[in-house]
């Protein structure tokens, strides 16, 4: 798991929030990955609990549906002994017209230390970070970023390939609506991977090359000699209907099948953030095949989120200690 590092900058994490991988340095990303690697074996302990966040309150504030991300954060926080509150928006006063900031301030007044938020508006977590004292973790803000997914994808790549620098990673599918794609692009380029995006013209945002990626509209070219293919879900719920003619045509042109895998490297890793649409962006055979690490991604997600919670909890505790001293 340890990668030889050219520069000898210390692995320090200097953030009070995790809003996106755009805002992290290479060293900060490596710090999270290092801690996650050390934390992963604790998932097999007899008693899977450490007292690190004992007495701290972690709130899951989800304005969009999510089961796997919310559950993953909840398990990670509970492994570190935090009290976890799931704030369900459908039944809360948001339904009665309360503003986002008022909802968040109410949660903080109830004693939150860390707020994990998913919201449909890009930048919603920035608003919270600038007005609240709690540490904020972005669990997905619209089509902008989903940093812990990006981190767990990188963790899985590094675990399986031993490195990230120099890997060719193809992000395949609906780039336009994907916060997972953006977090992957920011993180992977900072760690020195060659990043490609591949999909229909209508689902690739114009100007994405400026983020340091290569663009492909043809699947065979896009995955040629790839070390990793990260397949994105077709997000039917985010899409105006005219992005591509039909699901059938998308599957024919961009669905990843066993037959098409031969264009990639023989030991290619197949990743997907889930939930998967079997038979659309990924075939049954590929999803369950020998190259697939989709389930390992889920397990690694817990270790990565524990690392993030540890680092942010620690940063917050130090900040409070320093304020007390003044």
């Amino acid at each position: 798991m340890t990668e030889a590092r050219k520069d000898e900058k210390p692995l320090e994490f200097r953030q009070e929030h995790l809003l996106g991988l755009e805002y992290l340095s290479r060293e900060e990303i490596e710090c999270v990955l290092h801690n996650a690697a050390a934390l992963k074996p604790t998932l097999d302990q007899k008693i899977k609990k450490m007292p690190t966040l004992l007495g701290k309150t972690v709130v899951n504030l989800f304005f969009e549906n999510s089961t796997r991300t919310r559950t993953s954060f909840e398990i990670a926080a509970k492994r570190l002994s935090a009290d976890v509150i799931n704030f369900t928006v459908g039944t809360s006063s948001v339904a009665k017209g309360e503003s986002l900031l008022d909802t968040a301030r109410t949660i903080e007044a109830l004693g939150s230390d860390i707020i994990i938020m998913r919201h449909s508006c890009p930048g919603a977590c920035h608003l919270l970070a600038s007005h609240l004292r709690s540490a904020i973790i972005n669990a997905g803000d619209g089509c902008h970023e989903h940093p812990t997914q990006g981190l767990l994808d990188m963790f899985t790549m590094r675990e399986r390939k031993g490195r990230i620098e120099g890997l060719t990673v193809t992000i395949l599918g609906d780039i336009l609506h994907s916060r997972v794609a953006r977090s992957n692009i920011w993180g992977l380029t900072k760690l020195g991977a060659n990043v490609r995006v591949c999909g229909p013209r209508t689902l690739i945002p114009r100007g994405i090359e400026e983020l340091g990626v290569e663009v492909f509209y043809d699947l065979e070219q896009g995955i040629r000699d790839a070390d990793v293919i990260n397949i994105l879900r077709i997000q039917r719920e985010r899409m105006d209907s005219n992005m591509f003619p039909s699901i059938r045509e998308y599957r024919l042109l961009y669905g990843l099948t066993h037959d098409r895998l031969r264009f990639a490297k023989p030991d290619v890793l197949i990743m997907h953030p889930g939930p998967i649409n079997r038979g659309i962006e990924i075939s049954q055979g590929v999803a369950d095949g020998e190259h697939s690490v989709i389930n390992q991604q889920v397990t690694n997600g817990v270790a990565v989120r524990m690392a993030v919670l540890y680092l942010l909890g620690q940063a917050r505790a130090q900040k409070i200690e320093m304020e007390k001293a003044e």
Binding site: L11, H34, A37, M50, P51, T52, Q318
Partner: peptide
Amino acid sequence: DITLYRDDLSQLASQPLVGET
């Protein structure tokens, strides 16, 4: 590695890297 079990984490100047057990 005892990092996650320490009772003085908040008093440290930096965030110690968690080591493997």
